[in-house]
Amino acid sequence: MLEGIPLFPEQASNLAPEVDNLYFGITAITAFFAILVVVLIIVFAIKYRDKTGQKVGAPITGSIPLEVGWSIIPFIISMGIFVWATIVFFHLVRAPEQTLEIYSTGKRWMWRFQHLDGASEINTLHVPLGRPVKVIFTSEDVLHSLFIPAFRVKADAIPGRYSSIWFTATKTGEYHLFCTEYCGTKHSGMIGTVTVMEPGDYQSWLSGGGGMSMASRGEQLFQQLGCVGCHLDNGSGRGPALAGKYGMQETLANGTTVTVDDTYIRESILTPQMKLVAGYGPVMPTFQGLVNEEGVMSLIEYIKTLPPAGQAAAPAQAQVTP
């Protein structure tokens, strides 16, 4: 029966071997200390056993060199582990520059994934082999957490902000996808499958998805919601121009600066009065309730595609690289 028990999940991402090495390393170090102490306890307990209860022990009260030794040596070893684990951590949280971005929203009790070119799926996620993928996600209700054990990646989905995980899949196949932050009745049903495909198969899978690309949908929303009326390209409108702003620093009315990233754009759409750009009045209404999380993601994707002012706007679709 014991032969059937797996001890480790499959290694299916570039990050998995790094995490596993850390796991083996720490297991070896801690097992050494655990065995050392247990052996000493057993040896002492047997060697110095007194069945009568009448004898007394040796008059030993302590030893400063020993105390110093067994404080400093574990400290040095633990600092070694700390540095190693922190290096692995930064690989896990710092995505490379060029990634294939996939948007996702968690809500009780499902995960919806939105590919840039328009394909969307629920509780399944298709990704290509060998290419860095970044999943950017939020939650529509309570906390969730996106966990893919075979990739050794996890991050909480938090309503009101964006989280992300990244990985490069290294092995084709199907892997578990779990929600790991308790979210109510069907928490254990908020699961899915990640399918890693050869890049060619992934392309043909995507083309079967159909639909409008996220950036074009964003452009459409930009018109429909009337954003275009104030956010004029030349900056003369009632709101700041948006072209070329993504990733830049913006000075706010209160003098501080903020980086224009996904979270800031999202905040500006849903709670526009919170962080006003310097020189503009608090005239923008909130779009809470008028646009859903996926709409907001599409708008962000559209704003990302806008070229800096003065250049001709390229069609949004052209920005979607396969």
């Binding site: 850390l22 190693w84 684990a85 690989h91 966990f147 054990p149 990646v153 996890k154």
Partner: peptide, 19 residues
């Protein structure tokens, strides 16, 4: 106590958290 070391290790806690 020793398995606490695993969880204090950032790179490993990402995988182990909430499991």
């Amino acid at each position: 106590g020793l398995t606490g070391i695993f969880l204090a290790s950032l790179g490993l806690d990402i995988h182990l958290h909430d499991t």
